[in-house]
Design a protein around this nucleic acid. Structure first.
Lengths: 188, 188
DNA sequence: GCTGGCATGTAACAAGTTACATGATTTT
DNA sequence: AAAATCATGTAACTTGTTACATGCCAGC
């Protein structure tokens, strides 16, 4: 009956993990868990929570904390059921959407500067490295909740490693064709 | 001045490659090139093309072909310039968005059936295999336009391979914890 | 006294999705 | 004769993004 959108599922998932939380908390903490796969922006969060309450998937309660009004939300049994049902439905295939690769792909025919594209690749490599290190650090702490978090973390690690390798190869290829002068930008 | 959205860039990229084309053609052919990274749905295509014309990035012309009115579009020098400029800007980091991984991640705490999750993983493995084979086939034909297409294809290949490996490991882990009975569903 | 963080939202807009409307032509 | 494909769009709706408005409190 009550089909969830991915955003709603992500919010329910956050509620499931953290217990009673405010929209502000949820937005702030999303990054460390569900946020690796789906993080609604703050305004969407505030729009989603009351709708979950309307449908009985969450309950809210007001709290006055140091003279500030706070709305705290908690998932209901119905919410848990709806989330579980959603998990069991086969995931819909999202259309590919990757502006970064689009830029590389079109670079040749559009006559882009390969040196600039190589810089883009380098930037992405950096991001992948950062993610890899972050995930490794979490792995090291390793107080495991459920095996599932480790499974997706493993996905992230493999992804990061593959991006790094690809980036190295790609950067080399792009710089080979680009004029040598620009190489100095990279500086030692 | 005329900043492009990723959708506009994708459409311009398609025009760049195929020469003069109709909205219908563009939608249909997107899959084989730019579509790996960005494919606007048909309705968006029809909305985007006139706007590109308004801004002088493309020109349209009417053609009557077998009693049917057809709008043909072509990229202009301004369009090429705008696209090239867009390629040179550092790509914006898209927020992660992966419902599939979200489902696996939440599976543990939401009390999902691991056997069902394993099926999801299996499905994704299949998709990755299909992509891998498709890209390998293109590689084999290998009448290379620019090196750039090969670079992004290489990304796709590495990605597919990593997903396959991850899926194998993940499926095994999930089935290990799941009750043996369900294994029969996979049936030989 | 000012900055930054806490806290909740609204408004305006851009982008994407799905379904529908329309009608011709080509293929089976 | 029916089904598929060509061809162009509109309408309604959902998401997501960015910017803004408001005001309190804690620490420097």
């Amino acid at each position: 009956m009550s089909e969830l959108t991915a955003t709603e599922a992500a919010v329910l998932g956050l509620l499931l993990r953290g217990g009673e939380q405010s929209g502000y908390d949820l937005s702030k903490n999303a990054g460390h868990s569900v946020g690796y796969f789906w993080s609604p922006v703050q305004s969407r969060m505030y729009a989603t929570l009351p709708r979950l309450v309307e449908r009985g998937l969450a309950v809210g309660r007001e709290l006055v904390e140091s003279n500030r009004l706070k709305q705290l939300y908690r998932i209901t049994p119905d919410g848990k059921r709806a989330l579980r049902d959603w998990l069991h439905e086969p995931p819909v295939l999202e259309p590919e959407r990757n502006t970064f690769l689009l830029k590389i792909f079109l670079g040749g025919e559009a006559g882009a500067n390969d040196e600039t594209l190589a810089e883009h690749v380098r930037e992405r490599r950096l991001l992948a490295e950062r993610l890899r290190d972050e995930l490794r650090a979490i792995d090291a702490r390793a107080r495991e909740e459920t095996p599932h978090a480790a499974l997706t973390r493993n996905y992230g690690l493999r992804w990061a490693e593959m991006v790094i390798e690809w980036a190295d190869e790609t950067e080399r290829t792009l710089r080979k064709t680009a004029p040598a002068a620009a190489r100095r930008t990279r500086g030692a």
